[in-house]
Design a protein around this nucleic acid. Sequence first.
DNA 1: TATACTATTATGTCTGCACATAATATCAGA
DNA 2: TCTGATATTATGTGCAGACATAATAGTATA
Lengths: 229, 229
Amino acid sequence: MTRASWEDIRTEVMRRIRMRQWMPGAVIPTEEILANEFGCARATVSRALRELAGSGVLERRRKAGTRVALHPVRKATLDIAVTRLEVEGRGQVYGYHLIKAVLSPVPMAVVSKLGIAQRAEWLHLTSLHLADGVPFVAEDRWLNPAVVFDPAPDFATISANEWLVTHVSYARGDIAFSAANAREGEAEMLGVGMGTALFIAERCTWGEVEPITWVRLAYAPGYRMLTAV
Amino acid sequence: MTRASWEDIRTEVMRRIRMRQWMPGAVIPTEEILANEFGCARATVSRALRELAGSGVLERRRKAGTRVALHPVRKATLDIAVTRLEVEGRGQVYGYHLIKAVLSPVPMAVVSKLGIAQRAEWLHLTSLHLADGVPFVAEDRWLNPAVVFDPAPDFATISANEWLVTHVSYARGDIAFSAANAREGEAEMLGVGMGTALFIAERCTWGEVEPITWVRLAYAPGYRMLTAV
DNA sequence: TATACTATTATGTCTGCACATAATATCAGA
DNA sequence: TCTGATATTATGTGCAGACATAATAGTATA
């Protein structure tokens, strides 16, 4: 190596932590000392340590210094993509069917999660995503009709998810993962027996001023969500 | 604001993307132009854009420039903590029971995942984590006996997970989340009916030279894993 | 026409310096 | 001994300049 890059330093710091040269909870040398040792600028060490702090390996505080995380809260990152890309990423052919699209009163469960008016009427979309022709995800979505204007999309040909990411700007959202026994509608759509354990993802999405959508995705049995790296 | 900080710039860039001033797929101005516009150094703009690229909002390539991600692969981060901290983080009292700890041949499913010898004998631990005295997670763990030396821990008093993070250095690991119908043992431990849908986390962990452990965590019904921020 | 070489360009990284900020340590005074 | 002001210190951030690198565009040659 010609000169130490911030990645070299990150690797070396990780090595020392793994080799238990720097034990969990211990304070490691200051940026200045490390910069001196590695023969580089402090900013370079800083970059390396910042990245490691970002992934939960180190904890940093001004004046107090940098220490090896005692309980490495591993920040697992998940790549949440559009369903089509998820299917295609597995080398399978993506398919999509819109089952139902009606305007109807939003159920209480969704009302409370998004904090909207009791008697609001939203677009209720039920659809099925296929991988190689086999049911992959059953989607149950409530969509704020106020956001779906401009040229009104045809949700029979493009999935709501896909249309939303390119046409509506969101400000924040959260995702929850859980498990549930297949309900009647889901079991039928996915072609599985009632009560089969399904992996569930629920997402709430808000725009700058108003809620956009709530969706429940029920994955076909056998689905596994993996951490990236 | 006195002068533009990289966080100011990150916010402003996000605003422009949300306001659709910069559309998905479009190339945004170069760092130099933006630095000029915001009246700061290029490094400052660079930092802001790098962070946004890291969270999947932007895509950057040398020479080609920076563009708004067409399919914002939202990188959801999950905080994977030790079970005790997860329970205590909810303000509940943590409890732990070791059910079984025996040395026995590793089953094929685990052998193939960790890539170890067919007839290896590992420590098989079955335990239950409680929250406020109620079953929270049923743990089924296979542990490489080679890593558990030094002062041999008493897994009846400290959970394997907790002992491992402070005593064994791991190099890499992966996690998979899924759903499964409760098996006989799990149903009994968690006090639920057979077939109840359970949220499952499976983790493989390797050290620098050898595999360390494989664990299957079956969460009690109602468990939801939430994305951080 | 196809291919190899040569700018050109935008991002990626490093340096050395400066000042800001937050947390801690120290010490004077009541 | 407690309290509050002050000094110290490690990280956080910013700047200007330099060179590295990857990808593209353009040019010259076979």
